[in-house]
Amino acid sequence: MQASDSIASLKQASGEPFSLIFPKNGHTRLLMHVSFWTLFVISHLLYFWPLSYQIQITRPMLAAYGLYYLRYIPVFYGCMLVYHQLRGRLGGFQLWFSVLVASLIAIHLSTLAMFYIASVSLDIEHAAPAFQMLWRLYMESDLLSRKGLFMVFYDFEDLQLLLLPASIKVFKTAIINERIRMQIQKEGLLAEINSLKAQLSPHLIFNLLNAAYAELLPFSHKAASYLASLSSVMRYTLYKGTQHAVALKEEIGCLKDILALESARSQSRSKISYKQLGRIKPEHQVPALLLVSLAENAIKHGVHDSYQKSYVRIKANIQDDTLHFYIINSLPQLPESDAGRRPDSGIGLNNIVRRLKAQYPKQHSFTISKNESSFAIDLTLPLRAKNLL
C-alpha cells in the first residue's frame, strides 16, 4: 500500500463529514476549488454594492477589480507548491519564512502582471481612482525608492486576503498528518502485541539454543557457528524488531548473520555477497528490520525461487551521515510459456515504501530496477532523520 492510498483510506475511515469537506474524488475536489474561488471573487466584488448609490459602477471598474482578486488564485497555488517542495527539507521558522518570502514575491509579480493586463485590455482612465493610483505606483515607481517601500508594505498587506484559503489548507494538512501519525502508532502497537503473543518463553528457547551450541561445538565448529548466527537473528528480530529505530550497526550485524546462513544453505548454487564502504557511527539509526526485509525479499525471489545458478549482491555505502544501500538479485529464468507468471515482490516492498514515506517524507529515494534476469533496489536515506519515529 502506498502512502497516498493510506491517506485515502484514512479519509474514508474518518467518516462522512470529513469526506464531504475534503473529498477524494478528483472531479468533486475541482468543483469545490472552483466554487470557493468563485465565491471569493464575487464576495469581494459585492463590497462595491453599497457604494453604487454614491459612485457610478462601470464595467471597466468591475473588470479591473475582478482581475485584482483573480490574481490571488495563482499566488495561492504557487505558494502551496513552494510549501510542499520545501516541507521535507526545512522545518519550523525556516519553512514558514521561506513561504512568506515566496508569497511576497509572487503577490508583487502577479500585481505587476495584473496592472500590465489592465493597461492593455482595459481603459484605466475609467477605472476607480484608487485603482488608478495603484496602477501608477506599481508601473511608474522604482522598487528601491520611497514609493517602492510602500509597494512592499502594500504587498504584505495584500497577503491578508490569503489567510482564509491558507487556513483551510493548513487545517486539512494538520488533520491528515495527525490521522496518519495515529494510524502508524496504532499499527506499531498492534505489531508489538502480536509479537508479545508470539513470544512463547523466549528465554527458554535461547537457553535451549545455547545448550545445543555447547553440545555441538566439540564436533563441528561450522555447525555451531551457524546455530549461533541463528540465535542472534532470532534474538534481534524478537527484541529489536518491534522498535521504530535501531542502531545501524545492529541492523547490519543481523543482516550479515542472515546472509551467512543463506550462503551455507544454498552452498555453491548461489553466490551471496556483502560489501560495505564508510564508517558506521554510534548515532546512526535506521528503521528496525528495514535492511533485513530488503535482503529477505532478494533472497526469496533470487535464491529460493530458483534451482539454477543465482546471486544476491549487496553494497552499503555510509557517507556524510547518509546511507546508500544497493541490492540486486538474479531472477529465475522461466520458460516463455511461464514468463507472464513471474512472482511479484508482493506486499513486503509496498509496506517498506509506505513506511519510508511516513518516516522520511521527501528525505529519501527508493528506486526499483527490473528486467528479465535481475531485480535491483537502490535506497538512499539519512541516518539522523528528525522525523524517524
Rank of each mutant, 00 (worst) to 15 (best):
L294V: 09
L381N: 09
P74D: 08
A214V: 10
I107K: 04
N210H: 08
N194I: 01
L216W: 02
I57L: 14
L10W: 12
A295F: 02
L137I: 01
A113V: 07
I175L: 13
N387I: 06
N371Q: 05
H364C: 11
N194T: 07
I180C: 08
E283N: 06
I175A: 09
L289D: 08
L208F: 10
R136G: 06
P60T: 12
H44W: 14
M80L: 15
T58F: 05
K370I: 08
S231K: 11
S373T: 13
L122Y: 09
Q308L: 11
L204T: 10
A128F: 12
L190P: 03
N210W: 04
A385S: 15
D158Q: 12
I105K: 00
K169G: 04
Q2A: 05
A128R: 06
A212Q: 13
Y307A: 13
V99N: 00
A264P: 04
I107W: 02
L90P: 01
I368G: 02
G302V: 00
S273C: 11
P282C: 03
S6R: 14
H244K: 06
Q94C: 05
T58S: 14
N210P: 01
I124D: 01
N371F: 07
A385P: 03
K386T: 10
Y360S: 00
L162C: 02
R181P: 06
I377P: 07
P23Y: 03
G278Y: 11
S330C: 10
H221R: 05
A376Q: 11
L379N: 14
R313D: 11
Q2S: 09
T38L: 15
F40G: 03
L30C: 07
D257Q: 12
F36H: 00
E336F: 05
F325N: 07
R181A: 15
A8S: 13
S4Q: 12
R59S: 06
Y360N: 06
F93K: 09
M234V: 05
G92C: 08
A128N: 13
Y154Q: 08
A385K: 02
E16V: 14
F150R: 03
E372A: 12
M151P: 03
I107V: 15
S19K: 11
A211I: 09
P165H: 01
L122M: 09
Q85F: 08
S145T: 01
Q267S: 12
I280P: 03
M182W: 11
I327Y: 00
I184K: 12
S345Q: 06
K186I: 03
F22A: 05
L67Q: 03
A13R: 11
Y53L: 13
P74Q: 07
A211L: 13
N317A: 07
F366Q: 06
G78P: 00
A212P: 01
R181D: 15
L291Y: 07
S195H: 13
S19Y: 01
S293C: 02
A211P: 00
L209G: 05
Y239R: 08
S9C: 04
H203I: 04
L259A: 14
S268L: 04
